[in-house]
Simulated assay, not measured.
Amino acid sequence: MFKNIAVTLDGSDNSKDALAQAVDIAKSSDAKLTLVSVVNETSYYYMGNTSTVGTSMIPTDFRSTQRKAAQDVLDNAKAYCDQHGIDVEVKVEEGIPKRVIVESYGKEKGYDLLVMGKSGVDALSRVIVGSTTAYVVRNSDTTVMVVG
């Protein structure tokens, strides 16, 4: 069965469902589980990275804010895993999520299953550049489970 599972998390309901599925699989397979959240670097271009852009609504340190939000998602997911007796590794990555997932969590890196939600919280990015999930399904060299 599966021995090394990565689950991508963005705080969406679909990613929470993906986490629940990944935990069930990890328990039944005695697999190692890695929780991953990718800070989307393209959002820096959409939102700007400084308060001098002309709006006071944009945080001065947008990258730090996003990293903290990603870490919060992973902390909540880790607490869920702890409740279910699953030891996990936690990783916050930065980059274009679909590329980071395909390049860092495939067979070559030792993962035999990727679990992800069918859609996430980044609707703007999906409209502009396409679905992360669709890209991963088309380009990953490992098994991908889409939960939705």
Rank of each mutant, 00 (worst) to 15 (best):
Q83I: 10
G117P: 00
A22C: 11
I58A: 04
L74H: 13
G148Y: 11
Y46P: 01
V100Q: 06
V23N: 04
T8H: 02
K78H: 02
L19W: 00
V92F: 03
G148A: 14
D141V: 09
L9H: 00
N139D: 07
K16S: 07
V100C: 06
K68W: 10
K16N: 07
D112A: 01
K98Q: 10
G130L: 12
Y111C: 01
Q83A: 11
H84V: 07
E103G: 15
V144D: 07
L124M: 07
G85M: 08
C81E: 00
P59R: 02
T50G: 06
D112F: 01
E93M: 10
S56I: 07
V137M: 03
G106I: 06
Q21M: 11
T132E: 11
T8W: 08
I128H: 10
A79N: 07
N76S: 08
D13N: 14
N40K: 03
G130P: 03
G48Y: 00
K32G: 03
S56L: 09
G54C: 08
M116G: 01
M1E: 15
S131L: 09
L113D: 02
S125W: 00
I96T: 05
Y105G: 05
A79H: 10
V38G: 04
K109Q: 14
I58W: 02
V129C: 10
D72T: 12
N4W: 07
Q66D: 13
L74D: 06
R63H: 14
D82E: 10
K78V: 12
D13G: 11
V36F: 02
S12R: 06
G120S: 01
E103A: 14
D75F: 14
Q21A: 15
I101N: 03
E93P: 00
K32V: 14
K3E: 13
I5D: 05
D122T: 02
G106F: 11
A123Q: 12
A18N: 04
G95A: 10
F62A: 13
G130Q: 01
V136Q: 01
V102L: 05
R126Q: 04
